[in-house]
Design a protein around this nucleic acid. Structure first.
Lengths: 229, 229
DNA sequence: CTTTTTATCGTACATTGTACGGTACCATGT
DNA sequence: ACATGGTACCGTACAATGTACGATAAAAAG
């Protein structure tokens, strides 16, 4: 589709789309997704704002490039893929999970991204990691879908809870923090579970990690049984 | 904390917070989450824009009210809760899933919402639905967390795919649509799975539903086995 | 009526995405 | 060497956003 570097017309570009995406990517990591504006990105590149629109039709397209860059970090070596089921598969899930937590904006960005090149490669690799599994092609696809859903959902909830930042948030929104609400309201079971949890510190991170791991293995175990009729 | 209707001072409010939240809620359903602005909501109420700020400190607080209203739709009758494990629990998961699909904006809204009153009630009910299960208190909490993660993640992915609207989207973002990319690139396994899927039409909705159902039961089955050591 | 308290809302400002149009630049054709 | 045409560059402008500020209006309490 694209003409190559021969047969060039007009002024050559100063940047590449990947460069621009990278700057936006790092900006999102540092200042948060909402802080990524066309003006800011352009400024960090030392360019005028509207210059970006020579590289990108719309901001959504820039976001899609960011997402593609992110998914690139998920690609895995061939040796990694060759590991026996279910190790390679679970390793990919863990890596995806870590990536979502490291770049919390990616879950919001995803919405306007579509299936990029690296996302497709990642999916292909995920299917490859299911090679030794007892599933057929359609089942593999479903297991992948379900597992990805769980990974992203778990990351989403974890980010949500973690981002519920310090003490003034409750005041700012005039709503109670989660703990005060549970403690002060008629939520006996929530309270019981909370107490049961408190005896097993540390709470937040380690418990979330265990929850993730158990979720993954429960799901896989269930699928193996379900698809072995 | 709050004074009751006796002992009132000053001008009485024209609206209630719930009213305002409802208008915003319906607006989000009709025009999408991004279309919900303070100006629009105020206009639909027949009020000046800044009037809203007598009811709400910030837009995030309005979003939190919308989320609370949403979670209210999840509350379930006592008879429903009394059903034998795992029926009540699965029923709640299905209902949550349907609600997420019906109000796709809710996943984005959640991010700035925090644990509202109805969300806490919903969690309490979810734990109650686990009453006959073989899990202890801490395990119940984890099963709930994991299940909710899966439900929301599945809805997130499904919305993402569904919203990838018609044919001009690919042009608009200069990126290929998912199908063209899979068809045209080196993604043999994706292609195979896709072919395997095409023989089982209808594709989108029914397959997603099955994927959801299988994911839920796989996960529960796995948890039961895992927690029965 | 006066005072106190609260609701209402017009104006203003900073920030956003991006349409428009002009200018600068470079490879190519003559 | 020069003209041509295509592309990058970017200043300006506009509509829309959240919301701070302060004036005004209204209703209840004294």
């Amino acid at each position: 589709m694209y003409e190559m570097s021969s047969n060039m017309h007009g002024r050559p570009p100063r940047f590449s789309r990947e460069q621009i995406a990278q700057v936006a990517f790092e900006s999102a990591d540092r200042e948060g997704f909402d802080a990524v504006s066309m003006r800011r990105v352009a400024q960090e590149l030392g360019a005028g704002t509207m210059t970006l629109y020579s590289y990108v039709h719309t901001k959504d397209e820039l976001v899609a490039l960011m997402d593609d860059q992110l998914m690139g970090e998920l690609l895995v070596s061939e040796e990694e893929l060759a590991r026996a089921w279910p190790d390679a598969f679970i390793a990919i899930l863990r890596q995806t999970y870590r990536l979502r937590l490291k770049h919390p904006w990616s879950l919001a960005a995803m919405q306007n991204a579509g299936l990029g090149r690296n996302a497709a490669r990642h999916a292909e690799q995920t299917l490859a990691a299911l090679e030794g599994s007892p599933f057929n092609d359609e089942q593999k696809f479903m297991v992948m879908t379900v597992a990805d859903s769980f990974v992203d959902g778990h990351a989403l909830h974890r980010i949500e809870v973690t981002t519920e930042q310090a003490p003034d948030a409750a005041v700012r929104t005039r709503s109670l923090g989660a703990l005060e609400r549970i403690a002060s309201g008629p939520y006996p079971r929530m309270h019981r579970s909370w107490v049961a949890l408190e005896s097993r510190r540390p709470l937040a991170a380690a418990w979330m990690d265990e929850s993730f791991e158990r979720g993954v293995s429960a799901m896989l175990e269930g699928f193996v049984r379900q698809f072995s009729n």
